[in-house]
Design a protein around this nucleic acid. Sequence first.
RNA 1: GCGCCCGUGGCUCAAUUGGAUAGAGCAACGGACUACGGAUCCGUAGGUUGGGGGUUCGACUCCUCCCGGGCGCGCCA
Length: 554
Amino acid sequence: MSRLITECIRESIKSVLHQLYPECPAAVPFTVDQTRERKHGDYATNLAFILSKKLRKPPQEIAEELLEALTSVFRGQAQLEVAGKGFINVFLEDVFLEPFLEEVLQEGDEYGTIAIGNGERVQVEFVSVNPTGPLHVGHGKCAAFGDSLAKILKRAGYTVEKEYYINDAGKQIDVLGLSLEARYRELLGKQAEIPSGGYYGEYLIGVARMLREERGDTLLEMEERDRNAFFRQYAVDKILLSIRGDLEDFRVTFDHWFSERTLYENGEVEGALDRLRDQQHTFEKDGALWLETTRWGDDKDRVLVRENGSPTYFTSDIAYHWNKWKRGFQRVIDVWGADHHGYIPRMRASMHALGLPENFLEIYIVQFVTLLRKGQPERMSTRQGEFIPLRNLIDEVGTDVARYYFLMRDPATHLEFDIEEAKKHSMDNPVYYVQYAHARIASVFREARKMGLDPERPLKTRYVFHGEREKELVKKAVYFPEIVRKSAQQGQPYLICNYLHDLAGAFHAFYNHHRILDQSEPERTAMRLRYCLAIRSVLRNGLSLLGITAPQTM
RNA sequence: GCGCCCGUGGCUCAAUUGGAUAGAGCAACGGACUACGGAUCCGUAGGUUGGGGGUUCGACUCCUCCCGGGCGCGCCA
C-alpha cells in the first residue's frame, strides 16, 4: 500500500493545529499540495486562509503563529516559510524523500495501490452498443474510458466489475432481423427490400453470406414467426461476436455481458413495474402507464407501458438498474455517449422512484470524436453507414496510440483526433514520448548489465541528490499515488496521461544532462540506477492503468 | 424555443476544484556533449482566459446577462 506525501504532511500539520487552536473543529478543510513554482517550495498549505474565517484574524498573522510550532515538528525533514498573503511553504529535505523512494522500489508493480475505496463494490457499465452494427470510433472512446476508469478504481481500492449491456430486445432488433433477411433473399436472387429505418451497412451482406453457407435456401420455407426469430438471433450473435473481437484487440474485456432479453424472460421488467406502482409514482393516461419523472426534475413524464401493452426501453432500463442494485453494488457507473445526455433526468428520476440512494447511480457523458485526416473532418453516424469503424483505426494507428489519444482528454469535451499526426513516430506523439522514456531505461539497464552492474541491487549508502534535476525527478515519481487518488476521485484517466508525460519529460531532461553509467563514480551510478528503476515502475504502472504497453525497445 | 456540454497564445490542451507572476506540447526561430538510443534535450517569441456586470483577502474557476460552437428535446433504442 503506497503512502501519500500530502497525507503525511497533513498529519503533522494537524497535530500542531490541535495544540495551538484546540477550539478549532478536527476537520478543518485545508489543503496540502504541490506548488506550481519552485520558489514556493515543494508543497504548500492554505491553512491560514481557512482559519482566518473562523478565528477572525488576517491569514498572515495566523501563518506566523503557526510557523514556529510547525518548524519544530518538521525539524530535519523540511524547512518552512510564510509567503504571499499567508501561504505556508514546505521545502523538503532530501532525507524526507528517501523512504518514499524506497517504497517505490519495494512495491514495484504494486506501487500506486491506495485504499480510498475500502473494497466498496462498484460496477462500471460501458460501451453497451446495440448489436446492430460494428463499433465505430466514438464507441472506442467510451471503451477506452470505461476500461481505464475501472482499472484506476481497482488500484484505488474498489472492488470493480465491468459490464456490457446487450440491447437484444425491442424494435431495432426486429428491424435488424428483417434487414438481414432482405440481404439473405438478395443473395438467393429473390425480390427483397430492406425495411424503412433498416440497416443498410455492408456488414449485413457478410452475415447473410455466412448464413447462406450454413443453411442454403432452407430458411425461406420457415414459418414467419420462427423465421423472424431466427434472423434476429443470428444477426445479433454474429454482430456481437465481431464487437467482442474488436474490443479484445482494443484490449477491452468485460466481466459480464448482460442480456436485456433476460430481464423480460425472468419477469424482472414486471417486477420493476410492480415496485414503481407500489411506490405510488405511476399513473395512467391515454391508455398508457406513466412514471411521474417530473417530480424529480425531468421536463416531461415518461411512458413505461405503451398503449399497446408493451413496455418501453426506459422500463427495461429501470429493471436493469434495479437488477444491479439487487446484485449488491453500492455504486454503479454508466458511461454514455453524448447523444444520450437528454436521458439523464428521467434515469435519475427513476432511481428516486425506486427508492435507491442518491449517489447510487453515477453517469459519465462521453462527447464525440472528430476524426481529422489532412484537415478534413470525418463525421460519423451509425444509421447512415458513413462511419469509421474502430477496427480501421486500430489497424491504422495501433491500440496503444488510439487508447492514449482517447484518454488524454476529459471525455466530456469534444476530441480532435488527427490520424496523420497520431501515426507519426516522433515527438509530436505523446504516446511515444512516454513509451520512449520506458524503453530508454530498459536500454540503460541492458548497458549496465554488460558492464556487470545490477540495477536491482540495494544501495549501501544514503541517497544524495546531485543537483535539482535529480531531486525533481524523484519528487515527481513519488507523487504517483496522489495522481491515482485524484484520478479515481474525479473519474479522470487523463490526469494519468498528463502526469506520465510530465514524468517522462523530467526523465528525458535528467538523461540528457547526466551520465547515468559512469565507471569512475560507482556509488553515484548505483544511485542513478535506483532512480531509473523507480521511474520505470511508475511509468509501467501508469501505462497499465491506461491499458497501454510499456515496451523494452521501440 | 427549452435543457445539457464546451469556449484559455496560430493549433491541440493544462491550471492541484476559489489560491501566489495562467502553464505544457505542436507549429516558428536559434542552439546541444566524437560516451548510456537525437523518437531526446536547452533557449527565444507568442495572452485583456469569447464579451459585459457581480460575489471576496483572492476568479480561468462561483452567480447573472449576452455572443459563438456541439448535442439532445418519441408510446425509438
